[in-house]
Design a protein around this nucleic acid. Structure first.
Length: 470
RNA sequence: GGCUGGGUGGCAGAGAGGAUAUGCAGCGGACUGCAACUCCGUGUACACCGGUUCGAAUCCGGUCUCAGCCUCCA
């Protein structure tokens, strides 16, 4: 597979050369769990899920880790003071951790190979901090341990900024125990109301950044192929992860390729909790299927900002309808019914246009266009054998993008929005068809309008009358 | 101020020196009892100003403008 990846580190599109073709390693930053995630948080989950699927189709073994950060001061702050605040914090992070998994699963993401949680890796984190101190890249001060930024000459390489740039207009926190204003916290002291673990530096908890370095090391190794996340993580999160990884583990690149997805905007501004312009996946799922949301997320290239709107989702729904319509046209009797049957598909059995698009730095809009070409060919062909072949291609492509997971019947006749049950629909259709054979058009139209008022649309085909929920 | 990446038809969004992107919506036609689905047809689209070139939306320079990061953020 000739996969090209835009590498944030070099700022260029590069040919992907695995460290070991027999074990591809991919890490994507997951959420800090203290509330429901919004659709912008879902983007990296979906984008790196597509990458995971593509890699799986091209390589025998792909190890994909997507972490959950369940120790953070924002989580602590989200819980009111109480007798057992620690237990309450744990409960909260457990709850939102499950909510996260549920939400991204609704977006059709596969379960990653590893879903490590920060609090399950305190030992590794402490060991990592020890190593950094031993190697002269970190120091303890007043119960804290700090990373010594000036000790790492390459600091700033990933985010392409010089130390001087960072100081200009800097809003870095200047604490008395810091040797340098840019030094960042690896470990900080905890009081009784804050979760903490015993450590050589007293009871405390890890800072942000260090948990990712530790989990990557444990599950994937000292160096990995691809590290991904949102573009807002480039600095400082990934820069710091990189510094920790390089200083602790090896002189090899911490990650060979860094990939960053662009932000979703809502109303000309980045969707973010602090601005308040968010749409949670929970809320969106009340009106749309997860697959529709996923399609909407994939209509833009992952690196570009994507302006989110209900209209975008509505367009995604119509576009998916077209794909499902063409599959339905072939009929359920021929071949597999959904893309789920193609989970073991190999790159060589997929439509070249789709593979080519995705291999070019995950060009999902182009891949979707290729799928629509296939759908159009299905509709235009009158050779049943050819249609069946094309349907196979379409569904296999669907697997790669995580779409077309429904049977057409379920897609169009799903129960989520229906206000009438199926037997009644069938009875009304029979009534209307009787009226039609009597050439009682007025009656026939009345029945059709009646159904339409209940969001049921009819299609008279050569093989009978079909209905769908709109 | 520094660093990124953008500005494409009503909307979304690819492409990237000479090509029909694709989808949604609209319009005309075929099919249909009428529709729906589907098919066929349909858009002087590439922010602006210069330059390079036989030829530029695509390259170069400048202008305007938008978003992101520089602080927690996906």
């Amino acid at each position: 597979m000739q996969l090209k990846i835009h590498n944030t580190f070099s700022g260029k599109k590069e040919l992907f050369v695995p460290r070991d073709p027999n074990r591809i390693t991919l890490y994507a930053c997951g959420p800090t769990v203290y509330n429901y995630i919004h659709i912008g948080n879902g983007r990296p989950a979906v984008v790196f899920d597509v990458l995971f699927r593509l890699l799986k189709a091209g390589f025998p073994n792909v190890a994909y880790a997507r972490n959950i950060t369940d120790i953070d001061d924002k989580i602590n702050a989200a819980v009111p003071d109480s007798n057992d605040k620690n237990a309450a914090i744990r409960e909260l992070s457990d709850y939102y951790s499950e909510a996260y998994t549920k939400d991204v699963s609704a977006l059709g993401t596969l379960t990653p190979t590893f879903v490590p949680r920060a609090t399950d890796h305190i030992e590794e984190i402490i060991a990592l901090i020890k190593t950094l101190i031993e190697r002269g890249h970190a120091y303890a001060a007043e119960g804290h341990v700090l990373f010594d930024v000036p000790s790492y000459a390459d600091y700033g390489q990933l985010s392409n900024r010089s130390l001087q740039d960072m100081l200009d207009g800097a809003r870095v926190e200047v604490a008395p125990y810091k040797k340098d204003p840019k030094d960042f916290v690896l470990w900080k002291p905890s009081d009784d109301k804050t979760p903490g673990w015993d450590s050589p530096w007293g009871k405390g908890r890890p800072g942000w950044h260090i948990e990712c370095s530790a989990m990557i090391h444990k599950h994937l190794g000292p160096s990995i192929d691809i590290h991904g996340g949102g573009s807002d993580l480039i600095f400082p999160h990934h820069e710091n992860e990189l510094a920790q990884g390089r200083c602790a583990f090896s002189d090899e690149p911490f990650a060979n390729y860094w990939m960053h997805n662009g932000m979703l905007t809502l109303g000309n501004e980045k969707m973010s909790k602090s601005v308040g312009n968010i749409e949670t996946i929970r809320d969106l799922l009340k009106d749309f299927r997860g697959e529709t949301l996923r399609y909407a997320l994939l209509t833009g290239k992952y690196r570009s900002p994507l302006s989110w709107s209900r209209e975008l989702v509505a367009q995604a729904k119509s576009s998916l309808d077209r794909l499902y319509q063409s599959i339905m046209q072939v009929g359920d009797t021929t071949g597999s019914a959904t893309s789920l049957a193609y989970s073991e598909v190999n790159i060589k059995d997929l439509p070249p246009a789709v593979v080519k698009a995705l291999s070019d730095d995950l060009n999902t809009p182009l891949a979707l266009a290729a799928m629509h070409e296939i759908a159009g060919d299905i509709n235009k062909s009158d050779d049943p054998k050819r249609k069946a072949e094309l349907k196979t291609q379409l569904l296999a492509s669907g697997w790669l993008l995580g779409l077309l997971t429904y049977t057409p019947a379920t897609w169009f006749q799903g129960e989520d929005k229906r206000e009438i049950d199926e037997t009644d629909i069938q009875a009304l259709i029979a009534e209307r068809n009787q009226a039609r054979s009597d050439k009682n058009w007025q009656k026939a139209d009345e029945v059709r309008d009646h159904l339409l008022a209940m969001n049921i649309e009819l299609e008279d085909t050569a093989s009978g009358t079909r209905w769908k929920t709109i």
